[in-house]
Simulated scan of single mutants.
Amino acid sequence: MDRSLLENLAGLMIHKGHYFARIYSCIPASKELNISSAVCLGIINGTEGGCSATELKEMSCYDKALISRMLTDMQNDGYIIRNPEDKDKQRGMRYIPSEKGKILGDMLSVEFLKISSEVSKDIPKEDLKTFYEVSCKLINNLGEYAGELESVKLEKGK
């Protein structure tokens, strides 16, 4: 792949993250959760019957370790609870928003929808879908690459 294209893609991802963080910091409810947790709370809040960690990973593009930490933190902070209707606690455990999580999730959903509709205007839905799928792949690849770098670093440190 052309080096300048790779540099442009990396720059785009950095700028995207920077602008999103700036927008997110202007939302009053953002003081309670970081961006990643807010995204996950929004997904859990908007899914009938809640979400399992695996479903959350697929819908958010975050890695398994981050999902696990966020679920634990959000549960400890009272934003989510385990779905009491789950029969099998070990497989497919689902999380639902607590009352506190539902209120905050609803507030954030309204803001995210407003932002999403504004930034995606004049872009065909098919292009947005393709962009989302490619972005998820890039983010996953970046995570795998970072993991590989970390393991090489640990091996050299022996």
Results as ranks from 00 to 15, higher is better:
D106V: 09
I103T: 13
P97R: 04
I96G: 01
K100G: 09
K121V: 12
K121L: 05
I103C: 10
I96F: 03
S117W: 03
K129M: 05
K121G: 01
I115W: 09
S116H: 09
V119C: 01
E111I: 05
K125H: 04
L113K: 07
L128Q: 04
V110T: 15
K100E: 14
S98Y: 05
V119M: 04
L104Q: 13
N140V: 11
S116P: 01
I139V: 14
K129N: 02
Y132R: 04
L128T: 01
F131N: 00
T130M: 07
C136I: 03
V134Y: 04
E118C: 12
T130A: 09
E126W: 01
I96C: 06
I123K: 04
L113C: 14
K100F: 13
I123Y: 02
L113R: 05
K114S: 14
L104R: 08
E99H: 08
S117L: 14
K114D: 10
G105D: 08
Y95F: 15
I103K: 12
S135L: 04
N140W: 10
S116L: 07
V110A: 15
T130N: 05
C136P: 03
M107C: 13
S116D: 05
E99L: 11
K121M: 07
G105Q: 09
E118S: 14
I139P: 00
E133R: 08
V119Y: 03
E126K: 09
Y95A: 01
M107G: 05
N140G: 10
K121R: 10
G101S: 10
L108I: 15
K125A: 11
D122C: 05
S116A: 11
K102W: 13
G101F: 06
I103M: 12
F112A: 07
K129I: 07
L104W: 10
F112R: 06
F131V: 05
P124N: 06
K137M: 11
T130F: 02
F112Y: 12
C136W: 05
K100T: 11
Y132K: 05
N140Y: 12
G105N: 11
K114G: 10
E126V: 10
E99S: 13
E118F: 13
E118V: 09
S116E: 06
K137P: 04
D106T: 13
L104K: 13
L108H: 03
V119A: 03
P97Q: 02
C136R: 07
G105A: 12
V134E: 08
L104I: 15
S135R: 03
F131Y: 09
P97T: 13
I115K: 04
F131K: 01
E126G: 01
I96K: 03
E126Q: 03
K125Y: 02
S117D: 12
L104T: 15
S117Q: 06
K121D: 08
I96N: 01
I123W: 06
V134L: 09
P97I: 04
L138F: 12
M107S: 15
K100P: 10
G105W: 04
K125R: 06
E118P: 00
P97V: 11
K121I: 10
L113V: 11
V119E: 00
S117K: 02
I123G: 02
K121S: 11
E99Y: 08
L138D: 00
V119H: 00
E111T: 07
K137E: 14
K102M: 14
L104M: 15
E111W: 04
E133S: 11
S135F: 06
S109F: 06
E118G: 08
L128D: 02
V119T: 07
